[in-house]
Design a protein around this nucleic acid. Structure first.
Lengths: 238, 238
DNA sequence: GTCTTTTTTCATCAAGTGATGAAAAGGAAA
DNA sequence: TTTCCTTTTCATCACTTGATGAAAAAAGAC
């Protein structure tokens, strides 16, 4: 609390006097976030101690509280850091699709691809931190106690955008069906992005969690066909 | 350790002399497992203390170690208790399908329904403990550190059976595709069974996590269409 | 009743937990 | 150089953690 109050509000540079925070301060903050991200992703919020984070980051325990306050605030900082980038990338991707394709030619698969592809690309090219982050989000997504609120707080807008776009492509579809299908989609997507390695052992080497190109070749058409089937079934039997 | 060694090996009744374990012993064991199940499902392994379990079950902390040994062994006992019932029910369901339907008339959707339906039925009719259990399994499924091994240890056989049955229905399908599709399916299924309530708030009341009848009307055809699309795409573009 | 075994409770341990206040270190500003 | 502010470290607190051994209670066996 006291520590949190003395935090420099803006990131880059803080006013005029005193030691400039550019020296190592911000780097250390990022280092701490990186360490916390990896550990939280692997062991969950309660499975990680602030001492472990400090040790992994190579800093003193007190420094973590100095920069982030309580442990939960550190977790939120980890979660928030990439959530904004993620939402931006997804909104941009859907913008691009809607802008590039005439309304009459938009497809369910195209919309879904615009929604998911940014995540695959970032996971492949964004560096190792992103892999941890996706595993973290997948874990939060399946956390009954507080996962729902957290996911809603950060990711609801882009999901609503997906549903609305799909509704415009298939106007006869019911929202009920679209939301259920979205849930099925996000379950597949999150489990895949978290790359738990289960499919590697299950398939005895036929498939690899990290092979996102293989995912790309299958997930879009899988989900699109699922959506279409559910929509068709609903409209045929009301 | 010492406590674990003095455990009665077989459950029901233990030999001849001494206090019979029928009195309250087994009931207490079940009570402890129930309490642990609910807590682990909500907060994960590290988010629960043995004292919380004891308090929830209304027993002394030491009794937990007396019956189950270390905390991790308690967790395994919780996980194992229903896993066996689950596997039995699923095997029986697939047996019934394969027996009832001539090979020529089996469908991808039929096989998938035989694989998933037991879970939905048990979740609906099996009592509240099962809801917790499914949430627990979903959480383990998304745990990178040790979730993979745990899932494999308990559930690999029935999954291999699913894949083999699907292969017999669509002999031209590649195992690669079937395994990837299974991963998509299990992601959707586990997230749905864990009933996190996210779809309730996301859909603003249109859908309810607990409405498994709505799931039944959609999930089978969704997954089946996804499988068919992936298989078709693979065989059309080798 | 007495004996014998199991079940339950009590008191406690050693290690680890998140968190904090005070002091030290270090560079910029005067 | 001295002052001033920020960053980093140190020592520590109050509390919780998983776990255990010894003693007490319970209940059939004799």
């Amino acid at each position: 609390m006291t520590a949190a109050k003395t935090l420099p509000d803006a990131g880059p540079r803080s006013g005029g006097r005193g030691r400039p925070s550019k020296a190592k301060g911000l780097d250390l903050k990022e280092t701490i976030l990186d360490a916390a991200e990896g550990l939280f992703a692997r062991h969950g919020f309660y499975g990680v101690t602030t001492r472990q984070v400090a040790s992994e980051a190579g800093v003193d325990t007190a420094l973590i509280h100095y920069y982030f306050g309580a442990k939960r605030e550190l977790f939120d900082a980890v979660f928030l850091r990439r959530a904004e980038i993620l939402n931006q990338a997804r909104e941009a991707s859907m913008d691009a699709y809607v802008k590039a394709v005439p309304a009459a030619e938009m497809t369910v698969e195209g919309v879904i691809e615009a929604f998911i592809e940014p995540l695959l690309r970032i996971s492949q090219d964004g560096g190792p931190g992103w892999k941890s982050y996706f595993a973290l989000v997948a874990q939060v997504n399946n956390t009954p106690a507080w996962g729902g609120e957290t996911m809603a707080r950060f990711f609801d807008p882009v999901v609503h955008r997906l549903v609305e776009t799909l509704k415009s492509v298939r106007p006869q579809a019911e929202y009920r069906d679209l939301y259920w299908c979205y849930q099925f989609l996000t379950g597949s997507m999150m489990l895949t992005l978290s790359e738990t390695g289960r499919i590697d052992s299950l398939s005895e080497g036929e498939c690899h969690s990290s092979d996102l190109e293989a995912v790309r070749r299958r997930l879009f058409s899988y989900c699109a066909a699922g959506f279409e089937a559910v929509i068709a079934k609903a409209s045929s039997a009301p």
